[in-house]
Amino acid sequence: MSLSRILCRSFGTSPILRKGVINQELNSLAALLKYLRTPTGCVHDIIPQIKSNSIVNDDTVQKMIRLSGLEIESTSENMQMWTDALNTQIGFIDHLRDLEDGPSECIEKASEVFRLLESDHSPQKFLKLSELEEQVIAFNADAEALSNEDNFVAKDFIRSRVENIAPMTAKQ
């Protein structure tokens, strides 16, 4: 399958594109290129203007510099530049989030939106005490069985790494 066909199929069936809009059919490379080259908006238009009550301030930037351990000259000009840049980025992130979900509490959503665990996206199953007790028995039995088979010994592993590395370093 050619690259163009893969791309066409991927874009044509992308759930993101299908979400709430009817897409034009992308059945050729030319159609795809046309679609990509036709601007639907300008990033600069959607980056918000920096507001005076922005959340990143000098203190935040100072703390980031301190935690990074980098030796940077923090003149007032530099500080202003970094503060503006960070506020712009945060403004853009907020914009993307609002676009996706509408305004929301970031902590509540973050764990659900960005996790790819199957169980997070399937209907919630509430664990009963009897089930938990069964799980305990099964887990311990499983671990017991594994300990009889498992040959992992940290000491041996470290030794094997040292033995592998030693000839290399000697060569160097």
Binding site: A110, F114, S119, D120, Q124, F126, L127, L129, L132
Partner: peptide
């Protein structure tokens, strides 16, 4: 700054509301 983030490898623990009384 501990940069707390949700662990992406562990599922939520959903417990039956009766579990507290039973325990």
């Amino acid at each position: 700054d501990y940069r707390y983030v949700p662990d992406t490898e562990l599922p939520f623990v959903h417990l039956d509301p009766s579990i507290a009384d039973l325990i």
